[in-house]
Design a protein around this nucleic acid. Sequence first.
RNA 1: AGCCUCGUGGUGUAAUGGUAGCACUAAGGAUUCUGGUUCCUUCUGUCGGGGUUCGAGUCCCUGCGAGGCUGCCA
Length: 557
Amino acid sequence: MTPDETPSNFIRDIIDESRASGSSEKIVTRFPPEPNGYLHIGHAFAIQVSYSIAKDYGGEFNLRFDDTNPAREETEYVEAIKEDVRWLGANYENRLYFTSDYFGQLYDWAVHLIQNGLAYVDDLSPEEMREYRGTLTEPGKNSPFRDRPAEESLALLEQMKDGAFKDGERVLRAKIDMAHPNINMRDPVLYRIIHTEHHRTGANWKIYPSYDFAHGQSDAIEGITHSLCSLEFEFHRPLYDWLLDNLPVPSRPRQVEFARLNVEYILTSKRKLLQLVSEGHVRGWDDPRMPTVSGFRRRGYTPESLNEFCYRAGVAKRERVNEYALLEYCIRKDLEEKAVRRMAVLDPVKVVIENFPEDETEFYDGPNHPANPDMGTRRVPLTKEIFIERDDFMEDPPRKFFRLGPGREARLRYACYITCTGFTKNEAGDIVEIQATFDPESRGGSTPDGRKVKGTIHWVSATENVPLEVRAYEQLFLKPNPDDAGEGQTFLDNLNSESEKVIRAYGELELAGAEPGDRFQFERKGYYTVDPDSTTEALVFNQTVTLRDSWAKKQKK
RNA sequence: AGCCUCGUGGUGUAAUGGUAGCACUAAGGAUUCUGGUUCCUUCUGUCGGGGUUCGAGUCCCUGCGAGGCUGCCA
């Protein structure tokens, strides 16, 4: 699925320049998740961008957990994220790092800044700091502690490190410019006191570096050449550069920002996804309706399809929203090629083939894939009573309806022609049974007289089948922009109450023994994957995506 | 409001001063034992106004529009 021609984008242009100018020969990128939630499709995009660039330029790709805030990070997330990154195919080999590995070095660099008059310990409270910071239009003013002697700051920083102060009592700040138009340059916080155990360093540290103080230096330690991140960090770049300029770092990385990926009907906010999980609107992070990597995996998406989607979405410098149709296109395209075909009837109605012998079974061969004979064939049993799809029959069909109706002939896929001879209804007016006869001459799917049968329908023996639980999905949200809520409402008010529908269905015999994660095309219906909830007695299938249905589209008009 | 970034068909993205292209979507047609797949065709675009240039989507000015930034989050 690697694209034949990789079109240019502005990041690759920048990299081409760096290589041309000789500033970086080998390209090294990284993905720096904070372990405080599960990865979603937006992260998959970020991974795809950084990983594919490293790969295409023969460079390296690192995975680094940005664990600078012990108050919100957990080991559970570390493991889940590692699994997701691997599943997506981004190979970081043995280059798994943690910002917490660099806490010692970072501390030494903080000392270095103080010694060079470029940082100081501030005693201002958070509220006071906010007042001193100024606003978007007005400059800030210097803290009264700004010019305290370096020795004093040094001593204070050490005390902070040793736990002499409470959370929030003091902070280490860079000494830059309180009148700077970029607020990130108004003496940003470098270290803050947090008396919380860290998931990896335990109680060793009482102070933790801020993102700004940790990120660029971590990049430099790892020899990252191009630190790719999202647009909101653009405003931090001057600070990123300032720190690297003023510290004796071993390499000089460059930060390049690009726009996040947004998709219709999909939420990519860790906070909101967490809320969906914790409030039980979905069954978990890996609910097939979730836009998480694990959700897509459980839904039946392939890593290739997700990567292709991210690739096709492209890299840009402005916020954009991609159509959901592109995502569906990518998974259909991949599964069309890979998925084994099976028949399953999702909304069954019984058909009795009157001239078919009682208690007999005929077997027909069906290819596992119409275009790939290497995938083999399977045998499908035909009996006197079968199930077909309810909407493959119409009591009073229009001309263009190619399926079954009174007096109409249709082909049972892989088997024979049947002609509808009648149907019976219950008191409620529902069709409960259809009667038909089959043409013995048509066994194998055609007749000696060569007559044309336009419609082919799928079917399953009513007696020799596998009962299935099928979970059909719609969008989790009713609106393309889930955050588009009315006055006093939230994204939760846009939840689609019918996003999951559980269906009792019948599948062909060959489906028995399918394993969780196996993917199939249920012919004429869609792609389905076996859910881990399956037991040996009860198979559960998740609908990955339906097939395109131009008939349904035509009918709507 | 100040600073920064960005405006190309319906959507997403190319064109690096020289024929505005590709993909998705939509519409139509061919093929087909999946109304699927595949193949073919068609529709629709450079935010507005000036300027530089033989030539501007691209460079300059200006207007308009969109997004980001006032955590001891990342």
